[in-house]
Nucleic acid binder design. Structure first.
Lengths: 255, 255
DNA sequence: ACAAAAGTGTTACGGCTACACCCATGC
DNA sequence: GCATGGGTGTAGCCGTAACACTTTTGT
């Protein structure tokens, strides 16, 4: 999709599935911190989750994928829907009208962009270093934000973000996470920091290692991370086959 | 909402949030079997999940609640959204047109009921004995079906049902279940059958009892179930306060 | 009396927790 | 050499699985 087509506000009524949007919480991991990719809205002093609309004949999941691809430059991303936000008052037609005026797009009072929207939230896990953040036509910046320092967000986007984090934590309890967030090779401490950041609590170094190794989804390489201070840690990588298997089967049951 | 208003197909364009529906998988438990409430479509030889549309200014969750209330007569039901089904080819405009003709409702080719629909799936847990199944205006029957004997379903409703069951199993792993499905007083074997049915596997009687009691959400009464063959089992009931607490906190973590 | 179901208890195993100890590296 | 972080090991605890025994009820 080229630049011309990307300017969503110029589309006609009838281009998109009406009253429906997708919003993506894109998680990355950098400097031992979980980060999210946010857009700075033009004119307004608020940030927003990358989102978009679904073409009339497009699969909803595919639309989310498209948004991801446009903002990060990446394809084939781990992406999962987690909640539909459907309160009638979550839309702010006045705010959207302001956007249209700012962009100097003529519009009628019944313009599709001013209707009520319900939105499906997705969360995505990406490898931070491979991402090239790219703003869309309604935003003047696209940047990573530390999860602890997220600025004021548009509409109910803060709620969406919180719910995404909750969903991510839940996933952690019964599925492996990491393949999508880390580089191909990583150390055990790096993986542990990732888990700790998502969970928001400290874990015992030795118990973590034992538990994660017991899942039998990791392969230790004969390499070590050199150049760092202190003892050089081993490098690991995921055994993709076993990783996929664990994703499907779930790690533990409870029952 | 009275009968007049319930005939959804007679509503105008603009009454509902466009291109969007909710479908409910209503689970009940009877005769040691998990059952689902299904509607027999008028004319066609297929069954369907109870569903409906969302009024222009209605909360999506509220709409699902309304559907539940209309089909079961119950209020205040355990209800949870689990997945949005958004493939473009899941709608069948021809089938819907047939429905309109059958109901002898005049319609234009661009009638709202013939557009593409995406649907949000909910699952509900209800107390079987309190339900009074009531068909809607598009269906000639509303009945419970044994999960093992579900007939052919409309469109992608079979998929929706399967996904609901999956979500229910997942919930079982980290939250208590039962308060919404059983009568106020119940025996340990009854609760066990419920768990076994949802999980689709047998559990050890004694270990089950210990584990569920360890959750500390049950109260044993001084009564026993009389009249049944063999030794009379104790009656239990949920401690609602602790039950709610367990719902919120989750039973176990994994991490 | 007997079969079937329910109440209660015991033992062994495995995973988790909370530690201690040694090794490597940069300052 | 010392502080810091990484690799490996171990004892105790607890939940779970797999079992045996007793009690109650209907036939």
């Amino acid at each position: 999709m080229d630049q011309e087509q990307e300017d969503i506000l110029k589309y006609d009524q009838g281009t998109f599935h009406p009253g429906f949007s997708v919003d993506c919480v894109i998680f990355g991991f950098h400097a031992n911190q979980l980060r999210v990719l946010l857009l700075k809205m033009k004119g307004a002093d608020v940030w927003a989750l990358p989102g978009g609309f679904v073409f009339k004949d497009e699969d909803v999941e595919e639309a989310a994928n498209r948004v991801l691809q446009l903002r990060t430059g990446l394809d084939n991303i781990f992406l999962r829907q987690f909640h539909l936000f459907g309160k009638p008052d979550r839309s702010q037609p006045d705010f959207n009208a302001k956007l249209l005026r700012q962009r100097q797009i003529p519009f009628a009072p019944n313009h599709w962009f001013l209707q009520r929207f319900i939105t499906l939230g997705f969360y995505a896990l990406v490898e931070y270093s491979r991402v090239t953040p790219r703003p869309d036509t309604n935003s003047e910046a696209c940047e990573w934000w530390d999860l602890q320092q997220v600025p004021a967000l548009m509409q109910d986007h803060r709620q969406i973000l919180d719910k995404a984090l909750e969903a991510l934590r839940l996933q952690l309890a019964y599925q492996p996470i990491g393949y999508n967030l880390l580089a191909e090779k990583f150390t055990m401490p790096e993986l542990q920091r990732l888990y700790e950041t998502i969970l928001g609590k400290q874990l015992d170094r030795r118990n973590f290692q034992r538990k994660i190794l017991a899942y039998d989804i990791l392969e230790r390489l004969d390499e070590r991370r050199s150049g760092v201070a202190h003892k050089a840690p081993y490098l690991y990588r995921f055994n993709l086959e076993k990783y996929q298997q664990a994703l499907e089967q779930g790690l533990e049951g409870g029952w």
